[in-house]
Simulated scan of single mutants.
Amino acid sequence: MGGKVLVFGGLRGSAEPRPVPLGDLVVLDPATLEVERVVSGGGGPALSHHGSVPLHDRWLLVVGGWDGRRRLSALHAYDLAGAGGWARLEEEEGGGSRAPHAGLSGHTCTKVSDREGGVRTQRRFASLDTLHVDAAARRYWRNPPNPGRSDEPKGNGRGLIERLSSLIASGSASPRTPRALRHHSMTLVGPFAVLDGGECFNKASDTVCNDLFIYDTRTAGGRWYQLSGTDSEMKRVGHRVLVVGENLCLIGGRGPDGTSCSPEIYTLEINT
């Protein structure tokens, strides 16, 4: 966001059976790999396994997560402008379904449009909510998910879109739908949604994945494609994949054994 990488919450590498989630927000400059600032506390949440998404290059929106005792459905926003700070968002009455929110953890949030403030929340077994967010007014409302196109990147990211398109056109990415996953990462790259890693539900062992899936929205109904990972050391769960310039960068998460934490930042090579 604003050319910076924001890292919020998570868990320390700990042998404790119930480690306490973190409430720190770290601002990292990807060009120098230097930490610009660290925001601790300030009335904000302390969470792991949450979903987050930037809004209007100003707010970091955090949805759900695990607070060490239970799964939450609350929305929080951190304002990077001016005095900034954390604020909890309140649901506006009359804004769609009033059914109680389910607590969420290990889900993903994907910004659909800055103009409408839409955020899609993917829960277990791929159920969807659409959230419309007004962070300045500290409010949000819900309605059933509607199909839509994401905003095209302005400047940076166009070369990455072309490389993903070439993977599909060349047959390097094969048609395949992902299995039920949790603690994966999903990010939007123009007309593509890129899903990486996660923990697979339908396997008894070796459940941490390193596959990369591409969801192509350029055709009606959309279509999934898969790139199978060849490096078993890059299996990740609870990580994040971000668009930084013309590259996809992987940060954090647990490794192939599902327990060891990884502090490194990697750039994902896409060879077409």
Rank of each mutant, 00 (worst) to 15 (best):
V5T: 09
D196C: 15
L72F: 09
R70D: 04
A180H: 11
W86S: 01
S150G: 15
R18I: 11
H184T: 11
E264D: 15
E233L: 05
S172V: 15
L22N: 07
L164V: 08
N143E: 14
V244H: 02
T230I: 10
P191E: 04
D114P: 03
G9Y: 02
T272M: 08
A77L: 01
S232T: 11
R179M: 11
N146T: 15
G197W: 14
V63K: 04
Y225R: 06
E162D: 13
L80C: 08
L242V: 10
E34V: 10
S262P: 00
V208E: 07
H56I: 01
G253R: 07
A102N: 05
G65P: 05
G148T: 01
V5R: 08
R123N: 13
L33Y: 11
S150K: 09
R98H: 10
H101L: 07
L11C: 08
D257F: 15
D216Q: 01
L6Q: 03
S165T: 15
G159P: 13
C200Q: 13
E152Y: 10
F213C: 03
L47C: 03
R18H: 11
A31N: 09
G255L: 07
W66T: 01
S105M: 12
S232Y: 10
S262I: 14
N202V: 12
R179P: 02
S127V: 12
R158M: 12
S185E: 02
P100Q: 07
D257A: 12
A137Q: 10
L60R: 01
E116V: 13
